[in-house]
Design a protein around this nucleic acid. Sequence first.
DNA 1: GCTGAAAATAGTTAGTA
DNA 2: TACTAACTATTTTCAGC
Lengths: 159, 159
Amino acid sequence: MPNELHHELAPVDRAILRVLRDNARTPNKAVAEAVGIAPSTCLTRIRSLCERGVIRGFHTDVDPGALGLGVQAMIAVRLHSHAPRHVAAFVKGAPDLPGVLSVFHVAGPDDYLLHVAAADTAALRDFVLEHLTAHPAVQQARTSLIFGQVRGAAAGAAG
Amino acid sequence: MPNELHHELAPVDRAILRVLRDNARTPNKAVAEAVGIAPSTCLTRIRSLCERGVIRGFHTDVDPGALGLGVQAMIAVRLHSHAPRHVAAFVKGAPDLPGVLSVFHVAGPDDYLLHVAAADTAALRDFVLEHLTAHPAVQQARTSLIFGQVRGAAAGAAG
DNA sequence: GCTGAAAATAGTTAGTA
DNA sequence: TACTAACTATTTTCAGC
């Protein structure tokens, strides 16, 4: 997470972000009204926020179950400290593995946390065996089934 | 995650979701063009997807660093199996704790994973001490600093 | 950098097959 | 259910402050 805070965020910008965080499809005009500035000004600010990297994207939250992905899991992955080549390959490829929602690089005994979705527990098992256990960089993979997930109040920054 | 799949998702709907997943602010007209249907039809389908709960929301991905939240952590929380009253209270309040991005209810030795953001490591420590360690329902809290996070290719469903 | 109005573009509804 | 077309609203640009 490369983070250069060139200058503090203006209160107006914070207000804009608060609105867009909860509904990214809020029309520009409505955002402008909510924060008390002209639509044209609001548009300029939103663009600026995007260009400065404060806004990293607008995403639609889709129910994975509707896409046939009925189960989710958090998988703690420990890598071999040797074989840096393999490790680099794994890290590069992990986000593109099928069903991977997010990859967290963490401190501590585990190196990575993979948040994944799969059709069912059988598919989840296959995912772990095929893409994790079998990978030369992976030393250990501990899978925790996710019963449920709730977005926090601070979500949006950054889910 | 309550998931009733009444009927399979139409290919058009899947196409619409693919477009909106990567950019939730894509104008309806552009979505319609991309998937090859009329704007009015597209609007109807998107609304239907929202009503059926397939689309759960449109969120803006904000750089937490820009908001003064410089560090993130994944905290594994183990609760006391007794004292169900306290447990219920904790679970209910957890998403609203300051800086909480997401709460995962997981199977296994740990009960919950809290994805949190804080201003700095001192603030993170205070968060753990004040809201977790001190809580009567919490038996143990293991904090793992997050070095970095990458969205997976399947993200959007559901991050 | 903000505003406000004009021009361009998009969202929405109604009517029809 | 999807389309065309008319209507309404919004986005976006730009000259002036």
